[in-house]
Amino acid sequence: MKRDIGASIVSAVPAAEVQRWWRNRELLAVLFVPAVILLLPLAFTSNYSIRVLALIWIMGLAAIGLHIVLGLAGQVSLGHAGFFGLGAYACAVLPKHFDVPPLAAVLAGTAASAVLAWIVGRPILRLKGHHLAVATLGIALVIGLVLANEARWTGGPDGTAVIRLRFGDQVLAKPMVWYWISGGVLVFGNAVAFALRRSPTGRAWRAILDSETAAASLGVDVARRKLQAFVIAAVYASVAGSALALMNGFVTPDVASLMTSIELVAMVVLGGSSTPIGAIAGAALLTASPQIFASFHMFQEIAIGLVVMFSMTYLPRGLIPALGRLLERIGRR
């Protein structure tokens, strides 16, 4: 199976220049995100669109987490929504039943997701490919079951209200507020993802993606690295889930559903699994489309299905690498 990276450089260009371009490219990507977040409110002013954008930042954060475990380390995780749901419900359950302040609940949810990912990840990351996919599906399934069944704590299938975050005596509920909060967290999450990519950890992950055997033969502790990716991804998902719960003021068990897991995978693969920007782009596409079709709610599933099928068939490496190749070709003329 041939793999050409979206920005494969013709070897006619001298190595030093190429290196500089590569380095700048990643820096550009890190700066691109805050730039976009700062500028978009100039173009989109309605409360509705700001809310959609805030949702995109949140889903983008979760998607970056999945990109780390799926796109960088190559581990198929179809249960990402499980940790997303854990983070969301931590904010629903802890403040309401245990008087935990919302911010502390976010931290608790994150810690719980990390610990769960660590405990469950150790055995199941020994599996590969479809086996791993099914096992991760199972995790999300079990989490979803607990959330839907333990109605006493979680409000059952109909969901439950979430106590909002406060700043002083201000309740943080306006879309604009959440646009900046989730945007800020996304900037941080994106930067961390790029930092990891450039580090020995990132190289170890990418090596594992291409050949576990070779990676191990070079001294990479494959099992430990996979677990790290899995736990980090869970943390991203949990924080994103918490943000969603606090923004909406309400959660339902859907946040941990198979559908959500599939959407997250689709976001990552659609946008391009090899880069955090791809995850954000995919999140934008799959979050905005249903909103566009909101009045035609019935068509939502059909639309997502078609979008996913056609993009994956004709752009299997994702949108961002395809864009990269297009820019390449334009640049060469």
């Binding site: 198929v76 996919a133 599939i262 689709a266 059909i302 299905g305 996913v308 099928m309």
Partner: peptide, 10 residues
């Protein structure tokens, strides 16, 4: 996998 998931959605 994603293509078939998309198909199932559709």
């Amino acid at each position: 996998i994603v293509i078939t998931l998309g198909a199932s959605n559709f």
